[in-house]
């Protein structure tokens, strides 16, 4: 049982890494009071997913998926890359929107600390 676990842990490390990075991002989103740090956490979270996608696209010994005449090379799967490219665009847009929101919040309240914001909102109504 336990001896099966080690190879499992070792060979599937990409999953664990993705999960660990994801958790780091999630931690930042939950625990940090600074809104910018929350966005950074969100980005880390998203990055973990990108890495996960990229890692599943990998084919051992595969090369870049560019068709070469006559070659019988093993390609890595290109589709996840394309998908992730789109996902990255989405993530960038999200970050942009989030940052612009933070800037406007800062202009409105003069703070980007969530605790201060909650105190202010509680005070004003």
């Amino acid at each position: 049982m336990i001896e099966d676990l080690f190879p499992l842990l070792l060979t599937r490390y990409n999953y664990y890494m993705a999960v660990i990075i994801m958790m780091i991002g999630l931690y930042a989103m939950i625990a940090k009071s600074n809104l910018v740090k929350k966005i950074i956490g969100l980005n880390i979270f998203q990055t973990a997913i990108f890495l996960f996608y990229i890692s599943i696209a990998d084919v051992r010994g595969g090369t870049a998926p560019i068709l070469i005449e006559g070659s019988n090379a093993l390609y890595v799967n290109p589709v996840p890359h394309v998908l992730i490219l789109t996902a990255i665009v989405v993530s960038v847009s999200t970050t942009a929107v989030a940052l612009s929101l933070v800037i406007r919040i800062h202009r409105e309240y003069r703070t980007v600390e969530e605790e201060d914001l909650m105190r202010m909102e509680g005070g004003s109504g």
Binding site: M29, L35, Q46, T94, V97, L101, I105
Partner: peptide
């Protein structure tokens, strides 16, 4: 106008993005 909408929008964004990430993972 006003800041409350901004904070609400930010929280919505964070929650929404997390949910999108989960969906993306599911698709993956």
């Amino acid at each position: 106008r006003g800041g409350k909408g901004l904070v609400a929008g930010f929280n919505y964004l964070v929650m929404g993005s997390v949910s999108a990430c989960f969906i993306l993972l599911g698709i993956g």
